[in-house]
Simulated assay, not measured.
Amino acid sequence: MSGKILFIYQDERLPSSRIRVFNLLAELRQQGFEPSAVRYPKTIADKIKTFRQMRHFDIVYLQKKLPTRLEAKFFRRYARRLVFDFDDAIYYRDDRHKQTYSRARSLKFQYLVRIADLVVAGNQILADYAAQFNPRVTVIPSAVETRNIARKCYQSCQEKESTAQAKVIIGWVGGRGNLHHLAMLSSVFQTLSKLYEIQVNVVCDAGVEIPGVKVRHIPWRLETQDQEIAQFDIGVMPLPDNKWTEGKCGYKALQYMAAAVPAVCSDVGTNRYLVEHGREGFVVSSMDEFYQALNTLITDAELRKKMGLNARRKVEEHFSIPVVGKKLADKLSTLLLA
């Protein structure tokens, strides 16, 4: 089905805008849609221009931004069909704040969800929260690129163990705002460093130091992140268990899995549904379990390979851009027919 869609995103530099808008545009075009994308306007003049522009589209698709109530009313007035997409617990502040509850955020979120024709959530936990205010909610996971990207190159385990390259690389990718999550593993890395030759690769816009641990800081770049992840032997995603992290959509884990790298993740939010414990990686509930999982993978190259290849197959089948793009297209087609 054809239809004109106006995507309104926060900032092309933000991961959510890239992953949940720009990465899906080509797939939507293949499905017969005519998508356009504009940045959320800042000035009053640009906002008025955008509101008027909405009348020429079949669907207005607002990604993650929480407008004021007045602006939300204009969205509802000018959009023929309004879709709201979110992939974080944006009704809370992030966990760098001492107090995550925000009345202003909560009220903005509830109002926008109530007036939307369709709410698209990044995982079931977020969907269940939104469904309190609107039954028209669907889950569309964040899609990861699987085509023409670097993947872990698994030589035979015997060959690797017979070479000088016995070092095991444990990797983490993310923004500086989440480095406090990685820091949770400092003592685990320190203990493992006394037993094995490991290196922690941190692909990020900022570096970190962990005393007694060999850490390599690799500046994050969109053009090279896939190659850097493919150098990992193990990918980690530690998270504290709180209201903010409950809403995480596990994109780090998906990136590791797409590169055929086994993931070790905290059992928080949706991670247990992304990574099948013992098959594609490990999902753990404590630092002791993190240590045990990493110890197991460090000492068993064949297990890393088996889990990594299992993880890659899962991502191709359920979380690749073509698969997720088709799923979104089907939901939007249904909305147009309603």
Rank of each mutant, 00 (worst) to 15 (best):
Q158M: 04
N201W: 02
L303Q: 12
K42V: 11
S187N: 03
Y61Q: 05
I298F: 06
Q292I: 02
F7T: 01
E209R: 04
I229M: 14
D241W: 03
D330E: 14
F22I: 15
Q30V: 10
L297E: 03
E228D: 14
S102K: 00
Q124C: 00
A131S: 15
R93E: 15
Y256W: 10
L185Y: 03
R272C: 08
Q30A: 13
K49M: 02
R313T: 10
P67C: 05
G122W: 12
L14T: 14
R313W: 09
A45D: 13
Y111F: 14
C157M: 11
I5N: 01
K47I: 07
N271W: 14
D11K: 06
P67E: 02
F109G: 00
L118A: 09
A206T: 00
L195R: 15
N242H: 13
S36R: 06
F74V: 01
G269E: 12
L179V: 02
L195P: 00
A79G: 08
T43W: 05
L107P: 01
Y154V: 04
Y251S: 09
D241C: 00
D330Q: 14
L336R: 02
V284Q: 12
V203S: 02
F33T: 03
K42F: 04
E289F: 12
K194R: 10
A116L: 07
Y111K: 07
C157D: 09
R304D: 05
R313N: 12
A121C: 15
F282R: 04
D85Y: 11
V173Y: 06
C204Q: 01
L335Y: 08
V144P: 02
A116M: 03
K73W: 05
E12H: 01
